[in-house]
Every structure is written in structure tokens, then in C-alpha cells.
Simulated scan of single mutants.
Amino acid sequence: MATSYADSAQARAWDREFDEFGRPRPSHKDLYHDYGALQAQAQVREEQRAIEAVRKKALAIRINAAVDQIAEFWGLEVKKQ
């Protein structure tokens, strides 16, 4: 019994000290992770990376085609792939 009283008194003292510094107390939702939401966010990020990779590949093809057209216009040697 004495230990639980000491623990709760210590906890109250810690809470008072924490509040004196103006720090908000963390709520229970801040203390625990929602692993389902974290997995969903990871999946969305992975999909975005895949979309970005496809976009970059298409952009590289367009840029190479434009460079080839410019080289052809100026009579430079064009590499055929």
C-alpha cells in the first residue's frame, strides 16, 4: 500500500512539474501507434515511388527524342537505338 501511494504521489508531483514548464501532457492516442495506418501510409508511398519511376522513365524518353531532333536539325550525328 505504501508503495502505490508513493508512486501516485510521485506521479502527481511529476505532472505538476511537467505542467509548470508549459508542456502539454501526452494523451493516450499519442502514446500508441496505429500500425494499420502506418502500413497504409507505407503502401501509398510505395505506389507513389512506382508512379514516379514510370514518369521519370517516360520523361527521359521524351528528352532523348527532343535531343535527337535538335541534333538532326543541326546535322549532327544521331545515335539510333
Rank of each mutant, 00 (worst) to 15 (best):
Q39S: 12
K57E: 15
L59C: 12
H33V: 05
G22V: 09
A40D: 13
D19P: 02
A60R: 11
Y35F: 04
E47I: 05
M1C: 01
A58I: 13
A71N: 09
R49L: 04
A6W: 00
K29A: 14
A42W: 09
Y32Q: 13
A71M: 13
I61W: 15
D19G: 03
T3K: 00
A2T: 01
F21N: 14
A13W: 03
H28Q: 13
Y35N: 11
D30P: 07
A2S: 11
R25Q: 13
E17A: 05
E46V: 06
E20C: 03
K79I: 09
I63L: 10
Q43W: 08
A58V: 14
V44R: 06
D30S: 09
V67C: 07
D7G: 00
Y35E: 12
W74V: 06
F18I: 11
Y35V: 10
D34V: 02
P24N: 08
V54F: 14
I63M: 04
V78D: 01
L38I: 11
N64C: 07
Q69V: 03
A66K: 03
D68M: 04
G75N: 02
V78H: 08
K80G: 04
A9G: 01
F18E: 07
E20G: 04
F18D: 06
P24S: 08
I61E: 14
Y32D: 13
Q10D: 00
V44K: 11
P24I: 09
E77W: 02
Q41N: 09
Q69G: 07
F18G: 10
S27P: 02
V54Y: 14
A37P: 03
W74Q: 08
S27G: 13
